[in-house]
Design a protein around this nucleic acid. Sequence first.
RNA 1: GGUCUCGUGGCCGAGCGGCUAGGCAGAGCUCUGCAAAAGCUUGUACAGCGGUUCGAAUCCGCUCGAGACCUCCA
Length: 493
Amino acid sequence: MHLTNSVGGKKEQFIPVNPGHVGMYVCGPTVYNDVHLGNCRTFLTFDIVARYFRYLGYKVRYVRNITDVGHLENDADEGEDKIAKKARLEQLEPMEIVKHYTEGFHHVMRQFNILPPSIEPSATGHIVEQIEITKKLIDNGLAYETNGSVYFDVLRYNKDHHYGILSGRVVEELMESGRKLDSQDEKRNKVDFALWKRASPYHIMRWPSPWGDGFPGWHIECTVMSTKYLGEEFDIHGGGMDLKFPHHECEIAQAVGANGKDPVRYWLHSNMLTVNGQKMSKSLGNSFLPHELFSGNHPLLEKGFSAMTVRFFMLQSHYSSTLDFSSEALHAAEKGFKKLSNSLGIIKKLTYSGKGEGKTQVNEEFSRLVFELHTNMSDDFNTAKTLAVLFEMSSRINDLKSGNISMTDVSEEKFNIFKGSYVKMMEDVLGLREEAEHNHELLKGVVNVLIELRKKAREQRNYALSDTIRDDLKKLGVQLKDGKDGEMTFSVE
RNA sequence: GGUCUCGUGGCCGAGCGGCUAGGCAGAGCUCUGCAAAAGCUUGUACAGCGGUUCGAAUCCGCUCGAGACCUCCA
């Protein structure tokens, strides 16, 4: 297994801290708003990572947090907490905001078949630990209190450590660029960041601390929750590209400053989803909400697309590349996914009916495809290449069904490995399941009655009637397909 | 302005120095009463200009273009 480590940007072999185990932490959403498709891409990326490691037999502990306090509107000292602001605007309790958007987030994750993490801790549930680590950083001389707030001393840290190891930022350059520190500022240097913020008298979200009432800073929650559940050194830390700096850089500094060791072995960053080449983001106002996509209720879409189509669409590119989102690309994905999905339905029903050892050439091809499936996934989770192999396998599945390849051409062992790999790769690893409609018993029954009637009509060469049945069903979105041997199947669009 | 990334055929997108990625769309054919599905065949490509190399989409330099981060964002 190889993966690209954002520190250094090189592909490295994966060696777990504890053999057979994978500890992974991913920065979850700040629940003050609906999650959009760009957010979903990141969570999908790490869903694949967790699924594939499990498939390989690792015991995976996947921690993904919910940020429900501390995320400020901007890094300036007067920045307002996102949750608190929303609560004020909507005249709700912060917890009402948090609950509402957390549930919405979970709902969307289920729609995309993104599995829940092993632990989903929240920042407000770890205030005590955040205060503790802040105290520790002060004791270590890496943080200071001003006016009831506590800041991390980046310059001091940078003397003995490397602030910028992940993002490539140079502290001196950061000091020179951008906004100047004014006399109002509580920070010693502009590069310093908040560990704890004093709450103004009207601030609703507040907890007592050694420095008075306040609330934690944004970066400290992740340091606390990752190391609490995964240990001071764990395997993988993931998140969106845009969190690399400052968020993840600060996490490293905090953990190193408090515990004296580098917390993360491999940093993984998923790239942005773009619209017309521009990053999809809440602030740019070009974001797509999942329900807009499913319903097609969006100016840039002519129709809706299923969650599985979108999942497939995203998996066609590598997680580290930007992916451009467009109606056209989605149409193509819809058709492509249907192909794989059809084959999935076929292979699941297919049992070995041949005998003997089969033909060497066919056996070798089946083995090669299975092998490539795994080498591609093990090469930095290359889902795009994996899908290309699945398409090849899909063709072989159709060959088996139509008789282009006979069951006796392949050995029972090769067939079963081939079948198992296709099904597991599709369903367990890539999380692509057949669209549900096929499984609706009532619909199935009703359509089968019509299929029987149509068969009779065709036997009597009453093509006018048989075409009416087919055309009328088509209008309702049910597509009939005539097989070679007179057998008929249908699919729902 | 600083740091960095990317630019592949009609569209989306793999690619990490030599071997047709793949999907969608297009063209032709097979099967079929007609469709659909499936199968077979097929074209069009690496932004531009230099360099390194026996050999470059792939490495280096420059030019042009797009984007990201440096302020909140997955």
